[in-house]
């Protein structure tokens, strides 16, 4: 039962991610903006990542009749989501995130090396770092523009980061409620990213060539 509920949450994330992806795709088709193209890839990846986990869990439960869910589906889904988080961070200019000095490299490198015993550990830690970076950049943007929608986006990315952290921590306590809380937090975070869409006036037939 617990797996079904978690699958439902993941499928909700799949739908939310796809809707955000479709919206940014419309934006890209209308304006030809590379930023919207990157966000388009990001949201589709996040949505598909949730979908892989959700559908994978259901397939295992109902089709293959497994009692335990294989971790490779989870790892694959989270990996696809990480691609999405990368594109959000990349849109902010990720080059500035990685310091060039040897001193900083020596501090940052162990963060990637320590959890090397599991691919999922690595993927989740990368996702967490990318999302925290995206959150900080969006907060900085809010400080400049004072737009409330930026605050919602920052909150959304922050909750996604928290969700990834809790998801990583649930590996330490596999039987606990942490995984469920992690997925729920991520869904709420993804939902917060909807707020800016509600402020865009959408009209029917808004299709203009993207080669401007």
């Amino acid at each position: 039962m617990e797996v079904v509920f978690e699958s439902a949450l993941n499928l909700l994330g799949f739908v939310v991610g796809l809707v955000l992806g479709i919206f940014t795709h419309i934006g890209f088709r209308n304006t030809g903006s590379p930023t919207l193209f990157r966000l388009n890839i990001a949201f589709f990846s996040i949505g598909i990542g949730f979908g892989v986990v959700g559908f994978g869990d259901l397939m295992e439960l109902w089709v293959f009749k497994y009692t335990t869910v294989d971790t490779w589906i989870q790892t694959l889904g989270i990996g696809i989501q990480t691609v999405g988080y990368f594109f959000i961070a990349f849109s902010h200019g990720i080059k500035s995130f990685f310091p060039k000095s040897r001193y900083f490299k020596s501090i940052a490198a162990p963060l990637f090396i320590l959890p090397g015993n599991s691919i999922e550990h690595i993927i989740r830690s990368i996702s967490f770092i990318l999302l925290v970076y995206g959150t900080i950049e969006t907060i900085m943007s809010y400080m400049e523009s004072r737009k409330r929608s930026a605050l919602f986006v920052a909150t959304g990315l922050g909750l996604l980061a928290l969700g990834e952290f809790l998801g990583w921590y649930s590996i330490v306590f596999p039987k606990s409620i942490l995984y469920f809380v992690s997925v729920s937090t991520k869904i709420v975070g993804l939902g917060a990213l909807f707020v800016p869409i509600s402020q865009v006036p959408m009209r029917g037939g808004m299709r203009i060539g993207g080669n401007v």
Partner: peptide, 12 residues
């Protein structure tokens, strides 16, 4: 869409 991108701290 510029407003949307602004919310993410991005420019289109």
């Amino acid at each position: 869409f510029r407003e949307f991108a602004d919310s993410f701290g991005l420019r289109i």
